[in-house]
């Protein structure tokens, strides 16, 4: 009992520290590393409550894949510079956010602590956890029976997500239209076409860099749009 309590308190401290780090640290890389700490802590709590399989994928998928993906994006975009946290540009956002947070936490704790120390509710009769059966077997049994339709749908969801990510991050170059080719030898013309496309691409990039510099100009176009 003592050991359990000790483990819980230690991991809880790590979790809270990690969460605070995600919110408070200014460098995105540090934020990501703090997130890993929280995720590991949650994985330990999963093990403590017998959810061994979930603890494993918590570490492998969350800490191992998702956070690494975050870090890749941070490096790719080069946004690993510190963000100023001194003041919020939206008026009253920060006090309102803290007030909302306090309200949520306060109300949750009121609800949790006022009803005593035990969870009420009906214990399961259908999907009871059988102590003799390994956790992973029990989970697989419900996933492939009661939840098999949802399980199949998630495969569609993941496929769609992958396709969406590819489409979103694809660099769109100018398409080459064969019908536009004038008469002549194909190889030369193709080369000419590629050259023209390259020039066009450069122009586009220049325009893109120009886009971001004058802040006021963008404002005026947005005004005009309205």
């Amino acid at each position: 009992m003592r050991v359990e309590m000790f483990t819980f308190l230690l991991t809880a401290a790590i979790c809270l520290a990690g969460s605070a780090g995600v919110v408070l640290l200014r460098n995105p890389v540090h934020n990501a590393l703090s997130l890993v700490a929280t995720l590991f802590g949650v994985a330990v709590l999963f093990i403590q409550q017998g959810a061994y399989f979930l603890a494993a994928i918590q570490v492998i998928v969350y800490a191992g894949a998702i956070v690494i993906l975050f870090l890749f994006v941070i490096m790719l975009l080069g946004v690993d510079k510190a963000e100023g946290l001194d003041r919020d540009p939206i008026l009253g956002q920060r006090p309102a956010a803290i007030a909302a947070g306090v309200a949520i936490l306060g109300l949750s704790l009121t609800a949790l602590l006022s009803v005593g120390s035990r969870v009420t509710g009906q214990a399961s009769t259908l999907a009871a956890i059988d102590g003799s059966e390994p956790n992973i077997n029990a989970l697989a049994k419900v996933l492939f029976t009661d939840y098999v339709f949802a399980f199949e749908i998630t495969s569609v969801l993941l496929t769609v997500a992958v396709v969406g990510a590819v489409v979103l991050s694809r660099k769109a170059g100018p398409a080459i239209d064969v019908a536009e080719f004038p008469e002549g030898t194909t190889a030369d013309l193709l080369q000419a076409k590629y050259d023209a496309a390259a020039v066009e691409q450069e122009v586009l990039e220049e325009v893109a860099t120009e886009d971001e510099t004058p802040e006021g100009e963008a404002e005026t176009t947005e005004e005009a749009l309205r």
Binding site: A51, L54, V61, F70, A128, L139, V142, L157, V160, A161
Partner: peptide, 23 residues
């Protein structure tokens, strides 16, 4: 509550979270 369904839902939340992060 001695119910494995809670763990199954966590599994789906993780899948959705992964998809959400990718997109």
């Amino acid at each position: 509550l001695d119910d494995i369904a809670g763990q199954a839902i966590v599994f789906f939340v993780m899948v959705v979270a992964a998809a959400e992060v990718v997109v």
